[in-house]
Amino acid sequence: MNRWLLWVPLVLFGIFFAVVAAGLIRPKDNIIESKMIGKPIPEFVLPAAIEQRPALSQADLATGKPQLLNIFASWCVPCIAEAPQLLELERAGVQINGIASRDTPQDIANFLNRWGNPYVRIGTDMRSIVQLELGSSGVPETFVIDGNGKIVHQHVGDIRKEDVPALLEILESAG
């Protein structure tokens, strides 16, 4: 048997060790990023989620001005956590569009009454159709859309206080 062949198992184990050690050290976020970033927002039309706000379609998102598209739900706990940040963004003059995921009008209305309503339009996505079109894998998620209706950024999970300036900056540069 060739001498060098005897070292192959050790080398293979070394490779395994490197891969696993790197995997162990690397922070695990398990975020499945949408591949739609950089592409125009897909066509969709969603009915209005509540009476007080108009419905939402992709045409409403290409108005020449950058906007946020926020996917939320009344049954989602992190959505409550990010509500103050959305209000803060609204106060900063950002136009925020909402997509209510798998929700009922009554629950949505209650949720907005309680935690504030930063949205200009809210579409209701009862069967995750638009969510799938956007490449979104959960709630809450926030997309930044530029004036031409192109998706420029995706924020997965709730928006924390420290995320707000970054989002404002991305909106700024998208304009």
């Binding site: 048997m1 001498r3 005897l6 070292w7 198992p9 050790l10 184990f13 070394g14 060790f17 696993v20 050690a21 162990l24 050290i25 695990k28």
Partner: peptide, 30 residues
């Protein structure tokens, strides 16, 4: 609930035992 400390500990054990045995193999089996 990933515990990197524990993971690292077991991984170090793996390196000693498996790596050691395989080095022994390469050195001795010839």
């Amino acid at each position: 609930a990933v515990d990197p400390e524990r993971g690292s500990f077991i991984l170090a054990l793996l390196a000693i035992y498996i790596g050691g045995a395989m080095a022994l193999f390469a050195l001795r089996v010839g």
